[in-house]
């Protein structure tokens, strides 16, 4: 796996410098990461074999730039920041892939300008709310318990990579801070209830070919939300990934990458 190129693009009157990881050749794919920050992983690397992958870091999660998030005050700001970013990157058309919180953002950015979006792949997206199946508020879960909520196998390599705390004292403090801060930066646009009005806007992307991918054992965003998304995106194709929780692209990277790449290319 070679490292992606890291490009910094400042938007929002230059107050919001997005660091974007770029790798690959072919049609553009934009990846919106989830609430625990971005790491370049096997899933993205596999996509980069067939596509030009643009993976921006959510404002505030870029190392050394925590205060950026203060300039993005609402979901509307965030959506417009991404719109400016894609303009500046010269990405006039692209497919969007989003995970969890990032999938909600992908839907919102797509709904702003549907003509920009070729296809949409949503991995365990949030964005709706059902009283009978509440989305688990990951912020109120003990940090040590997070792997159990996010992963089917909390002791597996994917869980360790995302949540492991190093032994070194200073490194551990930095890792805890990074994780907590990344969640805070996402939570700002999510809680108390992750229904921020997507249901009133999602009709704008009902014609966009969409793949809904769900980990079979998602404990955070129960599988019933797959039906919720399909009520609005009636033509969406559904793919359930076995032996995966809330992050199928991390836990079953090869399988998820194959399915997503085929969908995007087809």
């Amino acid at each position: 796996m070679t490292s992606p190129e890291a490009r910094t693009v400042a938007v929002w009157r230059k107050l919001v410098p997005f660091r974007v990881h770029v790798k690959g050749q072919g049609p553009a794919v934009v990846f919106f990461h989830g609430p625990w920050g971005l790491t370049w992983d096997a899933f993205l690397d596999a996509l980069a074999r067939r596509f030009t992958v643009y993976a921006p870091e959510h404002p505030g999660t870029t190392p050394g730039e925590p205060e950026t998030i203060q300039h993005v005050q609402s979901l509307w700001d965030l959506v417009l920041c991404y719109d400016e970013l894609l303009d500046q990157l010269g990405v006039s058309t692209a497919s969007f892939v989003g995970h969890s919180f990032g999938a909600m953002v992908a839907c919102e950015v797509a709904a702003l300008r549907p003509s920009r979006v070729g296809k949409l792949a949503l991995l365990d997206p949030i964005g709706f709310w059902r009283d009978d199946a509440p989305v688990v508020n990951w912020t109120l879960v003990a940090p040590a318990e997070l792997p159990k909520w996010v992963f089917h196998d909390p002791d597996g390599a994917a869980a360790k990579k995302l949540f492991a705390i190093p032994d070194d004292r200073e490194e551990a403090a930095l890792a805890r801070t990074r994780l907590s801060w990344a969640m805070g930066c996402a939570d700002k646009f999510v809680w108390p209830i992750p229904d921020k009005g997507l249901k009133r806007r999602i009709h704008r992307i009902e014609a966009t070919p969409t793949l809904l991918m769900w980990g079979e054992h998602d404990r955070l965003v129960p599988l019933v939300y797959e039906q919720e998304f399909r009520r609005h995106l009636t033509r969406a194709r559904v793919e359930i990934v076995k032996r995966a929780g809330h992050a199928p692209h991390l836990e079953q990277a090869a399988e998820a990458a194959t399915v997503v790449a085929q969908f995007l290319a087809g």
Partner: peptide, 12 residues
């Protein structure tokens, strides 16, 4: 204990 300082509660 983790509720005393949930994510987003403190500045960086």
């Amino acid at each position: 204990p983790h509720w005393l300082s949930p994510a987003g509660n403190q500045d960086y």
